[in-house]
Amino acid sequence: MHMGIKPQVSRQRFTGLMACATGTALAGFRAQAQPVHSLRHGRFEITVLSDGFLTLPAEVLLPDATPEQRGPLLTALGGDASGARVQANVPVIRAGDDLILIDNGAGGNFQPSTGRLEDNLKAAGIEPARITKVILTHAHPDHSGATLGDDGKLRYPNAHYYVGRKEWDFWTDPQFETHNAAALHGFALGAKRDLLAVEDRLTLLRDGDEIVAGLSVNETPGHTPGHISVELAGSEPLLITGDACTHDVIFFAHPGWHFGFDTDPELALSNRQKLLDRAASERLKLLGYHWSYPGIGRAERHDGAYRFVPG
């Protein structure tokens, strides 16, 4: 049972966020994320494409910040008193004959400024039918919402899917509404829609599982109970963090702060601190989903916390 797991923001508030992007915001997006960022890491070729951006309110991004702290931080993020944008960076990884997505974006199931991945794949010369694997870090709508197209068919019809076993067990629990807070019930509807759509082509993952040679799974729960990160081997590891660390400015500078959409806030905070400590100690390369495009860089210790160093 999962009694006592309570996100910090209500479902009603979360639902309202889905429609908050304006036409001005959409116009701004069309000019972003060019040129496309690509790199080689060991045996892997990685291209980071954008699914658009989200607009999140201050109480989600900065629930622990004082009013005096919020203003300068939101300004630094390009926002205002109401909140700020965060990006949605989707890595496309070529490994031999495999073409792998880490998360598939929102489709039409989140804010109207998201759901751009399929168009950006095609602009990069990648047809959806060529994707062979989709790894879901977790089943929130901005990460798994594009599993099905508007026609109800799979967007990536030839792909095999992967998700954490604990993530599957949590969202598909037949007694979910009894076991969990009402604020999570809406999330569960979307998660079940996405996960059950690929049940016949789905592998459930545990910590340490290797999906292809050199690409393995790290369990990083808290944001959701079965959240995973993906580690790529190379001369130095590259860790694709999903939402285990949700922002490259806020949580590097303030690793003791919570994030409003974490399902288990204290577990998420603890694992975020462990991730940043390991990244700084081992000089890991990092790639974050909601970080400033392309979301690639390192964590350095700075003034008792960390700073993000792009590159």
Rank of each mutant, 00 (worst) to 15 (best):
H2A: 10
M3C: 01
Q8R: 15
V9L: 11
Q12I: 12
T15P: 02
T15C: 15
T15I: 15
A19Y: 12
A21H: 12
A25N: 12
A25I: 06
A27H: 13
G28M: 13
F29D: 13
A31R: 14
Q34I: 06
G42K: 01
R43V: 09
R43L: 11
F44W: 10
I46K: 04
I46R: 05
L56Y: 12
V60M: 14
A65Q: 08
A65Y: 10
T66D: 04
T66W: 07
P67T: 04
L73Q: 05
T75A: 10
A76Y: 05
A76I: 04
L77S: 01
G79P: 07
D80H: 08
D80Y: 02
D80M: 01
Q87V: 01
A88G: 08
V90G: 08
V90E: 06
V90R: 03
P91M: 10
A95T: 02
D97A: 13
D98E: 15
D103N: 14
G107T: 06
Q111K: 02
G115T: 09
G115Q: 07
R116D: 08
R116K: 11
L121D: 09
L121F: 09
A124E: 15
I126S: 00
I126K: 03
A129M: 09
K133E: 03
I135W: 03
L136H: 15
H140V: 12
S144Q: 05
L148F: 06
D151M: 12
G152A: 08
G152Q: 06
L154R: 15
R155G: 03
Y156G: 03
Y156D: 10
P157G: 04
P157I: 00
Y161G: 05
Y161A: 05
G164L: 00
E167C: 05
E167Y: 02
W168L: 06
F170E: 00
D173R: 04
D173L: 01
P174N: 06
Q175C: 10
H179K: 13
A181N: 15
L184P: 04
H185I: 06
H185T: 11
G186W: 10
F187E: 14
L195V: 02
A197R: 09
G208Y: 11
D209C: 10
I211Y: 08
A213D: 11
A213V: 09
L215G: 06
S216G: 12
N218L: 15
H223P: 00
H223S: 09
H223A: 12
H227M: 09
H227A: 09
S229W: 00
E231S: 12
E231Q: 13
E231K: 14
L232G: 02
L232Q: 03
L238M: 14
I240G: 02
T241E: 05
D243M: 02
A244L: 06
A244Y: 08
D248K: 01
F251C: 05
F252Q: 07
H254I: 03
H258M: 10
F259K: 07
F259W: 13
T263Q: 14
P265D: 01
P265V: 00
A268H: 14
A279S: 15
A279V: 07
R283F: 00
K285P: 01
G288Y: 09
H290K: 12
Y293F: 14
G295V: 03
E300H: 12
D303K: 14
G304L: 02
Y306M: 07
